[in-house]
């Protein structure tokens, strides 16, 4: 309520000041809101992107961390901002696919945002400790079937990608009553979730490749499968196609830019051009690929379609398996 008011008044101010100047769209710095804390995967991705962007764009970008409630606080702040293109959101799979699909009490919906472009795709990998007895995804599934209610998996929180990812994978292998048969251990971030696997608190983790990459490279963890179409460098594990579960390709992380629903066409168009140029930057590419991500720019239309289809497939599963948070 208060934020609405604040954001509204800021928007009015912005509009009032922007109106008399007939110049082209960015006439003042643009604020990019990161709905997660500094140092997280989204934050690092945004900061890496902003470096080439600031060279291309006529106005500076101000990166703003607005963390809280699994990305909801920052997302709401952008939803309530004016659609003049001076406030944009770093949207991510957690805040804009998994959480909306799992949490009916979320204070925003996907329709309240207009996507400018998705620029990063992050396949999901299921990983276990190298000391673990599980050498393939089948070992894991067999273990869950043999010892129901004893296998633990960690995630970066309720309604996060690793929370949903593990359930989606298990479901595709025909495991029912997920609530009873596997145990979810939420933690406060991907780092903690992986630490839990490393120290044996949790048996496996199905989340983005980027936080898991150092542990795979270091030989402390073993990947069981990846959800990309092709095999990934450094991840010596079969793809979902090879396993025969192509439907799991829908399970990927992504990062993109979005504005409020009434974002102007002019801003959307310009951002498309800027993003296209920024993602070609070598340093940016190097940073993203070193973390196991795939740099892939989508047009606004493709982005919306991509997000909606991911949402639809997640939502179907949530309803079918009764996974809603309430």
């Amino acid at each position: 309520m208060k934020t609405t008011l604040i954001a509204l008044s800021m928007g009015v101010a912005a509009a009032a000041l922007a109106a008399p100047v007939a110049a082209e769209y960015p006439t003042r710095p643009i604020q990019m809101i990161i709905p997660f804390g500094p140092g997280g995967a989204t934050d690092l991705s945004a900061r890496a992107l902003s470096t080439p962007l600031s060279r291309i764009m006529p106005q500076p970008i101000v990166l703003t961390n607005r963390a809280g409630a699994g990305g909801a606080t920052g997302s709401v702040a952008v939803r309530d901002a004016a659609g003049d293109g001076y406030t944009l959101l770093l949207a991510r799979v957690g805040s804009h696919t998994v959480n909306p699909a799992m949490n009916p009490n979320l204070p925003y919906t996907l329709d309240e945002f207009r996507f400018v472009g998705i620029y990063e795709i992050n396949p999901v990998a299921c990983v276990v400790n190298s000391n673990s007895d599980f050498h393939s995804i089948d070992d894991l599934i067999n273990a869950v079937n043999e010892r129901p209610g004893e296998i633990l998996y960690s995630s970066s929180g309720v309604g996060s990608l690793p929370h949903f990812g593990a359930l989606m994978v298990l479901d595709s292998f025909g495991i029912t009553d997920l609530d009873e048969n596997v145990i979810h251990i939420p933690t406060e971030g991907d780092g903690q979730a992986l630490t839990a696997v490393l120290q044996g608190t949790s048996d496996f983790y199905c989340g983005s490749t980027s936080p898991a990459a150092p542990f795979i490279n270091g030989g402390q963890m073993r990947p069981l499968m990846v959800t990309s179409a092709e095999r990934l460098d450094g991840f010596d594990a079969p793809t979902v196609d090879e396993i025969g579960k192509p439907e799991l390709q829908a399970l990927v992380g992504w990062t993109g830019l979005a504005g409020p629903a009434d974002l102007t066409d002019e801003a959307t168009e310009k951002w498309g051009d800027w993003l296209a140029e920024a993602v070609e930057d070598e340093d940016f590419q190097r940073f993203m690929t070193s973390g196991g991500s795939i740099v892939q720019l989508m047009s606004p239309e493709e982005s919306v379609e991509f997000v909606n289809s991911a949402y639809e497939s997640f939502r179907r599963l949530v309803v079918a398996l009764d996974l809603e948070i309430d």
Binding site: G39, G191, L198, P214, F215, G218, G219, F287
Partner: peptide, 28 residues
Amino acid sequence: SLGIPGDVITAIIIGAFMVHNLTPGPLL
């Protein structure tokens, strides 16, 4: 030694390692 960030700051420092293709952990 393990590649685990103990707090938020060290999590950011991991990012700096990764950019240069260095992996914190036993292999480092």
